[in-house]
Each structure stands twice: as C-alpha cells, then as structure tokens.
Nucleic acid binder design. Sequence first.
DNA 1: CGGGCAGTTGAAGCTCCTCAACTTAAGTGG
DNA 2: CCACTTAAGTTGAGGAGCTTCAACTGCCCG
Lengths: 231, 231
Amino acid sequence: MSDDVLSEGLLNGLDEEATAQMLRQAERRTVPAEGVLFTAGQPARAVHVIVSGVVRLVQVTPSGPRIIIKYVRPGEAFGSPALLDRFYPTNAIAVTECVELQWSSATIKSFVNRHPQLALNVIRDLETRLREMESRLRDLSTEPVEQRLARAILKLVETFGQRTAEGVEIPFPVSRQDLADLIGSTLHMVSRTLRAWETQRRIRRYRRRLVIADIEAVARVLYREPPAEHE
Amino acid sequence: MSDDVLSEGLLNGLDEEATAQMLRQAERRTVPAEGVLFTAGQPARAVHVIVSGVVRLVQVTPSGPRIIIKYVRPGEAFGSPALLDRFYPTNAIAVTECVELQWSSATIKSFVNRHPQLALNVIRDLETRLREMESRLRDLSTEPVEQRLARAILKLVETFGQRTAEGVEIPFPVSRQDLADLIGSTLHMVSRTLRAWETQRRIRRYRRRLVIADIEAVARVLYREPPAEHE
DNA sequence: CGGGCAGTTGAAGCTCCTCAACTTAAGTGG
DNA sequence: CCACTTAAGTTGAGGAGCTTCAACTGCCCG
C-alpha cells in the first residue's frame, strides 16, 4: 500500500521480483512518537527506511548542546553504516509515530551483491545528504541567524509542508529549541525572530504546529543580506 | 607502482583481474599545482581518485566567501555524482601537483554492475565524508574559533602530517585564508591565533609550510573549553 | 630593487550568546 | 472540570567574541 515511497527511494529501479523479495525480508516495526529507533555508538544493525512518519537524527555533544543532523522523510534510507559494519553515528528519534522497515546488515549486504542498483540507490541518498550538509556548512559559515532560520524553515516546508487554508503547515511538532539545534543558534534568538515574523503575519502557530502563512515573505529574508551596493 | 593507495580505497577487495581491468580503463592525468580538475556546476563526467598530491574541494558563494569543503588525500574517491548523472557540486583544485585517475560515468557504472564491491567502496568514502561533515557542523555550531582551528589543524596533521626534525609538517602550502575558509572564520582571527601559538612554540613556519612543533599543546586547546566548574 | 600579495596588528562596533525573570501553554491528578 | 505542576516560550539587559575596517609590515618574485 503506502510502500510506494520505497520504489522511488531505496528500491528504485529494482524489478518486481527483487522488490517483492526485499519487502518479504524486511522487518516491519511501528515506533511511537518520541520512541528511539537507534542510539549513537551502537553497532549499526540494519539499514532503515521509514514508510510513514518523521524521524529526527540527533547528535548530543558530551558538553551538552544538541545538534539536529536531519529530519528524515518517508522513503529516505538511513543507517547505511550497517553496510560497512560501522556504528550508528547519531540517535534516531521518532518525531511522530512511524512505521519503519529494516534490513539487517547481512540481508542488505547479500542483496547489494545481487542487485548493484540497490547500492546506487544508497549512493544517491548519501550524495543528497552530503549536498545538504555542504549547504548547511556554507550557511553556518557565512550567514547570520535570521537567514539561516529562513532557510531551515523553507527546507522543512519543501520537504514536509502541507497546504492548508491558513498557509503551509509543518505537520509535526517543531520547538524553538529544535530550530535552534538545526541552525546552530539558541532558543532565544529563534524565539525573538519568529515572534517578529509572527507579528508581520509571515508565520502563525496552530496547535503546536508551525504554519507558514507567507512563504515569499520568508524567502525574501534571504535576499536582502548585504545592504546592497549603493549603486 | 604507487597505485597501492587504490587497493585500500576505491579498489579495495576487488580480485586481481577486476583490479587490472579497472586500472586499464582508467584515464590517467597529471595536473600542475593550482590546476583545476573540475568546476562546480559542470555535469559530473567521471569519478576521480588521486594517486599522488593533494586536491582541495572548494565552494564559492555568489556573494563572495569561499568555503573549503575538504582536502582530498591520495586514494580517496571524489566526483561520485558521476554515478548518478548529476553535477559536480564543488570546484576541485590541485593544491600540489597531482596524478589522478578518472573513470568516466559510463565506465564506472558498468563496473559497479559487475562488481558491487566497488559500490560499497564508494559508499564507504561517502559515509566517511558524511561523518566528517557532521563533525564540522557540530564544531561550527558549538565551538569558538580557537578550538575549531585546533581541530582543523589536528585533522590535517592526522591526514597529511609528515614527521620532521622540527615536528610534524603539513606538506603543502596552507594560507591563513585557507584555514579561515576551512573553519568558517576570517583571515584575521586565524592570523592572531596562530601568531599566539607561534610565540608559545606550539607551531612554526618553514618555507610556506605549517609545522606543528607541539601537537599535544595544540590538542590541549580542545580541553579547556568551559572555564571548568569551580568544584 | 620595486611591486604585490600574504600576513600582522589595532581599534571600533555589532551580532549573538548568556543570564535571569517572567508569561503562556500544556499536561496531570484530584 | 479546575487547581496544580512542569515544560515551552518570551523578553530585557549586559557583555563576550567575532567581524569589519584600516593601516602597516614583511616576504617572495620578477
């Protein structure tokens, strides 16, 4: 049924038989909101894909601060260190209730050997993530907080946004602290900035959800960076 | 001869025949220092590996600032977007004279289909890079300039360092601007910090090269972050 | 020997973080 | 359903760290 997401992601380009076989060997699991899928430092047992829901990949530094590496959407593969017998580098936490599929290290490795396309699909996801990380690194190095925040929110909109009467909604709870952890700033800065946007009617809040009322207004934040050459 | 680096990287685990075949199909090229291997935005023509020398992957933002994504060492594969018919996301510049091998998009894809191990080797490199990027993102979000600089230099030492009488040397030119672009700071901050370290005899300069005289002293920078609980 | 690029250094100002107090919203149990 | 508890968010003030601006120095290369 809703496993279509797979055929555009991890199982893209596999023939019907291989797809069926993959699905048969998958371990299916439902994880409640706030549940832990795996923990940083553990041996990577399996490659994961969520079929529905949203997962957050988080790192916590010894000294305290939290960094959100990524919000994972349905269809995206994660836990690929399992292919290499490495360790999970992050904690994976369910943001909403999730249905996930897992393929154990051994299973996925044997599949890769028979279906190189599967490896290419993993490579595709890794490449995409690498581009994302490069982009975030660039932002963090060069842009001020307000613009990083705008970018982060626009990214969430693009990835998870759902149209509603009021605007585009991010369909899961995102706290100010979460946003701060996403852009490398503090809850305070995020709070101030969002408050300002709220009074300007760019965004709203609706039952713990973030609603972007005026996407273009948010996007415009990105384009008035340098006070513009006077010319 | 010096192609051993390959058998620990891209060609790891391939049998002798496959290795020979890969090497036969590789396009070999020598690039002078400061030469351009490829440019951001171009269609990714080939997967690359350098056999000797050092390459710098750089992004330049429209508004000016430069970001060094990575220093690539011999044996490391880059340009993997070629596997997916995507575009090079960065500029690749030779830091020193380099010898590189290339496999065109078509060649490498056909190899991957016959030798899934090759795909796993690409995945390994991508995973490693992703971990690096996560680590840099964490540093950039949480650590002050001096510590980021210490980390960057220790990383260079670990990856490229060569023991000499004076200490460990980074065997290619690294300007203050380069270091700034690596840690998301400015030439000024880097200059000040390195100067201080120089007077403390932690580092030296030797013919445009950076020499780390006292690695432990540099490493110690990382461990006195918070003024330490008075306890 | 002179031009130019890389590096050094000082001073000023601004962004952002920290600290702290308060407000609002959201669960929890009687 | 309402008091109570706790978590999440708001807002102000102060100050640290970093960037920016600017001027100067030293070194390499022609």
